[in-house]
Amino acid sequence: MTGQTAGDLLRMTDAGRVHHAGTPAEVHALRSFSLAVAPGELVAVMGPSGSGKSTVLHLAGGLDVPTSGEVVLDGVSLGGLSVRKRAALRRRAVGYVFQDLNLVPALTAVENVMLPRELDGVATSTARTEALAALEEVDVADLADRFPEELSGGQQQRVAIARALVGPRRLVLADEPTGALDSLAGEAVMKVLRARVDAGAAGLLVTHDAQHAAWADRVVRLRDGFVVGTTGDLVHGVGRAPAGVVGDVAGGQR
């Protein structure tokens, strides 16, 4: 990819994130990372623990801001926004599938899916209609009135995905969405994510599983905050790992 195009929903340009900058405990979580994702594309990010994968998702979704470079979501640069404005943009444009699901135990499946829309000021009746449609999309609409404890792990994951897809979400971020599932349930979840991307969303997936990464159009591999390999014409102008690091992972984890 030679540069940003008008159709890109997410653009990260030389994005870096340093924790505790200027102190002895300074940590470079991500270094000079560049990536553009358009609607209809699913990109997988892989790497060992501590490589910067979650940092990519946090920056892409506005949960954090870069200490260097720029992140542009749906035409808006996130670095210059207040916490409140980033949260409003995230509710409108971003669906996040958390590794630990974060379903509210006291709410039913449909109420969990309705929650982000209601927080964004959408009328309850409209939020419920949208939530039921999202549950239908992931094939669990018949479980709408059950509480999380009454659902299997795979069913809970589908509800979490429905919550990420509800309303006008254009970017779906998924952090190890199949980590707690068996192989069959995991493949079903990936099928749902792939279908949503094919329907027009942009997707960014963090995974350790090469089989699940195979559902993506492109794969980027990280180590120690650096890009150490890509599949597809994915990254332009990226920071590269020091000499020797790439060789350590060549042909390794996908």
Rank of each mutant, 00 (worst) to 15 (best):
178 T>C: 05
188 A>E: 07
215 W>A: 15
214 A>M: 10
176 E>C: 07
200 G>W: 06
220 V>S: 04
198 D>T: 14
197 V>M: 11
218 R>W: 02
209 D>T: 10
174 A>E: 02
225 G>R: 01
195 A>Q: 14
197 V>D: 08
220 V>N: 03
195 A>E: 11
189 V>G: 06
194 R>P: 07
177 P>W: 12
196 R>W: 09
171 L>G: 15
187 E>G: 15
209 D>Q: 08
184 L>N: 08
189 V>D: 10
195 A>S: 15
222 L>I: 04
206 V>W: 08
216 A>P: 15
220 V>Q: 02
218 R>T: 13
193 L>Q: 08
220 V>C: 06
206 V>P: 00
176 E>D: 12
196 R>Q: 12
225 G>E: 05
204 L>I: 06
188 A>L: 13
223 R>M: 11
186 G>R: 02
189 V>I: 13
204 L>A: 06
205 L>C: 08
207 T>N: 02
168 P>M: 01
217 D>R: 02
185 A>C: 08
220 V>W: 03
179 G>R: 00
183 S>Q: 11
177 P>F: 11
206 V>I: 14
207 T>S: 02
189 V>C: 08
219 V>W: 03
186 G>N: 04
191 K>F: 01
195 A>F: 12
212 H>D: 09
171 L>Y: 07
184 L>V: 12
200 G>F: 04
173 L>R: 05
171 L>P: 15
169 R>G: 11
205 L>S: 05
220 V>R: 00
202 A>E: 02
181 L>A: 14
194 R>W: 10
210 A>R: 07
182 D>N: 09
185 A>M: 11
192 V>G: 01
215 W>E: 15
184 L>W: 02
203 G>V: 07
175 D>M: 10
190 M>P: 06
226 F>H: 15
195 A>M: 11
197 V>Y: 09
179 G>F: 09
180 A>N: 12
170 R>S: 08
167 G>Q: 06
213 A>K: 00
198 D>R: 13
182 D>I: 05
183 S>K: 00
206 V>G: 04
225 G>A: 03
221 R>Y: 08
195 A>H: 14
210 A>F: 01
209 D>Y: 02
202 A>C: 06
181 L>H: 10
174 A>L: 01
172 V>N: 10
199 A>M: 06
211 Q>T: 14
200 G>M: 08
205 L>N: 05
176 E>V: 11
178 T>A: 09
176 E>F: 10
222 L>M: 07
